[in-house]
Amino acid sequence: MSNNELTNTSDTPILRTENLCHVYQPGTPFEFAALNNVNIEIKKGEMAGIIGPTGSGKSTLVQHFNGLLKPTSGRVLVENQDINKREKKKRDKKSKDSEKPVCFKVGLVFQFPEYQLFEETVFEDIAFGPRNMELSPDEVNKRVYEAMEWMKIDAENMKDRSPFSLSGGEMRRVALAGVLAMQPSVLVLDEPTAGLDPRGCSELRDILRRLHSELNITLIMITHEMQEIARMVDHLIIMNKGEVYADGAPAEIFSNKEKIEALELGIPPAMELLNRLQQKGFNLKTNITGMEEAADEILKALK
């Protein structure tokens, strides 16, 4: 679709899909085409959001990013390399580490990641990923403590506790730390704030923002929360029925009101307010997604 809108930025693409298709359970009565000709491009250092109604193929799409799912047709390129092709080549050589590069470059955090915790202590659980990378014990140690610090986990008190004794929000952060400790260059999160209380949500969002700005991690988030995602991300992809429905900067996408409303996803409240004010005859811009900026715009219009 309209991914050429983005090509004018000088950043290099870190992740790209080419005519990506995926069919679930082919050859059975339950055959289902989950992805149809998806072409997207994520730039290095970008914070991207993927939204769409249930069953639109969002989760299927991100599972292709680290090679968990193989495309039925089409290609997935991470740093300009076809992740599935390279794997195959290595397997032919009977290399043991056929999956190593891909799933360590792109860290995928599933919805409700706290359900993947299994170790006896918080430390051990976070160390699971780095250990699978066959790093030295010192390096594993270092990464685990770093990840705990980033995720605001109190290492002194928590590292020897059982992950099952923690609160929901803490478990979520431990699970995220487990992926972060692998130091991926792209971090994909499926509904990172789902099921958290409002405070947990905003805390987690702050952490993610810091990861993005300070560690320069490329972030890709799947979410339902329209108002928050519109404010956070600088690239938005809307999926519908396995296809890319819209792709571009949030302000641009939301300015096409009819197209967004057709999906019943809702538009950010600040934008909704500006739209209504404009209808009432105020002279103001409506392509603003943040509350503060919207307030400034209204003040300007009132002067």
Binding site: Q63, L68, C103, Y115, Q116, N132, V179
Partner: peptide, 27 residues
Amino acid sequence: KIFKAQRSRGARFGRGGIIEKAKSLLP
């Protein structure tokens, strides 16, 4: 889902000897 999540954390299944294989199922 759990299988995929652990694989995303680099877990490998069905490798090595029988004890190793059984251990890899713990996650």
